[in-house]
Simulated assay, not measured.
Amino acid sequence: MRLVVDLNRCQGYAQCAFLAPDVFEMHGEEALLYDPHADQAQHDAVVRAAAACPVQAIFVEGVAGLGEVGEEAPAATGAQGREASDAR
């Protein structure tokens, strides 16, 4: 399994470190450290961590709906990276 975290998008909410502590670790209050080649045994925890990321900064290879590694991340707009809706 291979994963990538968009560290420009990551806001340090640490949901990933809480859900998959063997793969993700907070260094200080804002810096995230992670294993890009996490063990397959961590698959379920990594998928839960990616799904729980408030800003969708985690991309996991081969997991539908969570972005694909190498796929361009969608442009972040709005307060939490969600697309802004047109109120007209």
Results as ranks from 00 to 15, higher is better:
residue 3 L to G: 06
residue 3 L to A: 08
residue 4 V to E: 12
residue 4 V to R: 14
residue 5 V to H: 06
residue 5 V to F: 04
residue 5 V to S: 04
residue 7 L to S: 08
residue 7 L to K: 13
residue 8 N to C: 00
residue 9 R to K: 07
residue 11 Q to S: 05
residue 11 Q to F: 04
residue 11 Q to C: 07
residue 12 G to A: 08
residue 13 Y to T: 14
residue 14 A to G: 10
residue 14 A to E: 15
residue 15 Q to C: 09
residue 16 C to I: 11
residue 16 C to D: 09
residue 20 A to S: 09
residue 21 P to A: 07
residue 21 P to K: 01
residue 21 P to Q: 06
residue 21 P to G: 02
residue 22 D to W: 04
residue 23 V to F: 13
residue 23 V to G: 12
residue 24 F to P: 05
residue 24 F to V: 01
residue 25 E to F: 10
residue 25 E to L: 15
residue 26 M to S: 05
residue 27 H to N: 10
residue 27 H to F: 12
residue 27 H to P: 00
residue 28 G to M: 07
residue 28 G to T: 11
residue 28 G to Y: 10
residue 29 E to P: 11
residue 29 E to R: 15
residue 30 E to W: 15
residue 30 E to M: 13
residue 31 A to S: 10
residue 32 L to K: 06
residue 32 L to F: 12
residue 34 Y to R: 06
residue 34 Y to V: 04
residue 35 D to T: 06
residue 35 D to K: 10
residue 36 P to V: 03
residue 37 H to W: 11
residue 38 A to M: 07
residue 38 A to L: 10
residue 38 A to Q: 05
residue 41 A to H: 04
residue 41 A to Q: 13
residue 42 Q to V: 01
residue 42 Q to F: 02
residue 42 Q to I: 00
residue 42 Q to M: 10
residue 43 H to L: 14
residue 43 H to E: 09
residue 45 A to V: 04
residue 45 A to W: 03
residue 46 V to P: 11
residue 46 V to E: 08
residue 47 V to M: 03
residue 48 R to S: 07
residue 49 A to R: 02
residue 49 A to S: 00
residue 51 A to N: 07
residue 52 A to C: 06
residue 52 A to P: 04
residue 53 C to W: 05
residue 54 P to Q: 03
residue 54 P to M: 06
residue 55 V to A: 00
residue 55 V to R: 01
residue 55 V to G: 03
residue 56 Q to N: 07
residue 56 Q to H: 09
residue 59 F to I: 02
residue 59 F to P: 00
residue 61 E to L: 09
residue 61 E to T: 00
residue 62 G to W: 06
residue 63 V to Q: 08
residue 63 V to A: 08
residue 64 A to H: 11
residue 64 A to G: 11
residue 64 A to W: 00
residue 65 G to D: 02
residue 65 G to T: 11
residue 68 E to F: 02
residue 70 G to P: 03
residue 70 G to C: 10
residue 70 G to K: 14
residue 71 E to D: 08
residue 71 E to K: 12
residue 71 E to N: 02
residue 73 A to I: 09
residue 73 A to W: 00
residue 75 A to N: 09
residue 76 A to V: 13
residue 76 A to E: 04
residue 77 T to E: 10
residue 78 G to K: 08
residue 78 G to Y: 13
residue 79 A to Y: 06
residue 80 Q to T: 13
residue 80 Q to V: 14
residue 80 Q to G: 02
